[in-house]
Amino acid sequence: MIQVSIEVNGKTVTAEVEPRLTLLDFIRDVAGLKGTHAGCEHGVCGACTVLVEGNAIRSCLVLAVQADEQEVISIEGVGGDLGRSGELSIVQDAFCEAHGLQCGYCTPGMVLVAEALLADTPNPTEGDIREAISGNICRCTGYVQIVEAVMLAADRLANRNYKSKPGQPSDQTLG
């Protein structure tokens, strides 16, 4: 057993874990956050995507011991004030409005790759969006609306009058 300390959505979670425990199982079973979905558990489907140090990665392909001392944001933490404000992020809201989800199983992963894309690429083309979600499978095959949702989110982020990153407070006014 090895002690790890991982900051999940702004809260440090410390636990003794087996080295074989994936970050996915750490988030779900140790941190108790079930929004990160376990799909294939071997890196094919993208349902378990989270942000580690700002990068979208698949939590089933990272061991908890590898994420020691790092910052993780899961779907619970993308809303305002690391999810504590109870408000949806612009991306989450756009997924609702554009009907970018059907069964919802892939949605946390889709939202997080979209958050990572828009943090680096404020004005993505449709090609950029398709590239960003290319590792995430939607078995309802609702890709058209997912792409529309990300485009809507990009448009709203470009025209908002404040700036924030996923999970950060949204009260910082643009100068």
């Binding site: 890196g43 993208g46 995507t49 990068n55 979208a56 990665i57 698949r58 392909l61 990272v62 790759v113 990572a116 894309l117 590239e131 960003a132 290319s134 590792g135």
Partner: peptide, 9 residues
């Protein structure tokens, strides 16, 4: 090579 999440790691 892969896609952005696998390239990040």
């Amino acid at each position: 090579v892969g896609h952005p999440p696998t390239r990040a790691r």
